[in-house]
Simulated scan of single mutants.
Amino acid sequence: MSQALLTVIGEDRPGIVAAVTQALYAADCAIGDASMMRLGGYFTIMQVIDYQRDFGAVESALDPAVKRLNLRVHLDPIPSLPRQQDSANVRVTVYGADHPGIVASVTEKLASVGFNIIDLESERSGNPDRPIYVMVIQGSAPEGVEQVRAILEPLKTSQGIEITVHPIDTVLL
């Protein structure tokens, strides 16, 4: 079994996920980790796939969907890596008036304490005259919630944003 990272981008419309996943199924692929979402007026898919056939068969299986829906596809073979052992134990929520530098300043502070971002979602909302930026980050904080709260606290004033930090309960089975 081989693995590849599949990236798909297209103008948002119904049927993209169905067309791509049906093509992968027809090519005997299995979908692993995946993120599929609308970004602006576009729909994006990023996923790790397992495939048994040769790489060209996967590309050929995707081709009809790509042409029919005018999608841009990038498929990269990747080495199979062991699954990451850390899991999200902290959720950071950020919101405020949209301005350049919010993502850069928050993620720089998080990186400085070894915070591993597992998922980051953001959205620009509000109205054109008063846009609001909302970002939710889930990740692994080696030293826990209090260290993350402390490192982000100064950004509330310097960036003029609201930040909340909550623990994520993890259950070991």
Rank of each mutant, 00 (worst) to 15 (best):
Q52V: 08
P77S: 09
V20Q: 04
M36A: 13
D50W: 01
P77M: 13
G40A: 07
R53S: 15
R13Y: 03
V94I: 15
Y42W: 07
R83I: 10
A18W: 06
A26V: 14
S60Y: 03
Q84V: 03
G32P: 06
R53D: 13
V92F: 03
Y51M: 02
R38A: 09
M36W: 04
L81N: 14
H99M: 06
A26L: 10
I49Q: 10
R72P: 00
S105V: 01
V73Q: 12
T93W: 01
K109H: 13
F43C: 05
H99E: 04
L110V: 03
S60P: 01
I49K: 14
C29K: 11
D98G: 13
G41M: 05
Y95Q: 08
R53W: 07
V48C: 02
L24M: 08
K67P: 02
F43A: 03
T107N: 14
L69V: 07
S35Y: 05
E59N: 12
S105E: 15
S35C: 11
A61C: 06
V73F: 08
R91K: 12
V48I: 15
G41Q: 10
V48G: 00
E59P: 04
D86L: 08
L81T: 12
L81S: 14
A97K: 15
L69M: 13
G15F: 06
I78F: 08
A65H: 04
R83V: 04
Y25R: 12
L71P: 06
A34K: 15
M46D: 01
T44C: 12
M46V: 14
F43H: 00
F43T: 04
M36D: 06
L110N: 01
T107Q: 08
L39S: 11
S60V: 05
R68E: 10
K109T: 09
S60E: 13
H74N: 15
M37N: 12
K109R: 13
S87Y: 00
K67W: 05
M37C: 13
A61G: 07
D63M: 09
G56H: 11
V20H: 02
V17I: 12
T93L: 01
D86P: 00
F55I: 06
P100R: 02
I45K: 02
L69T: 05
D33P: 05
D98A: 12
G101S: 02
I102V: 11
L71T: 02
R38P: 00
I102Q: 05
R72F: 14
A88K: 00
A61S: 12
A27K: 10
E11R: 10
E59D: 10
V106E: 01
I49G: 06
E59M: 11
L62G: 08
R13L: 05
L71M: 13
S105F: 02
L110T: 02
D33R: 12
V58G: 09
A61Q: 02
G96E: 07
A27N: 11
L69F: 15
G41I: 08
Q85N: 07
L62H: 07
A65M: 11
E11T: 10
K67G: 05
I16G: 11
A23W: 00
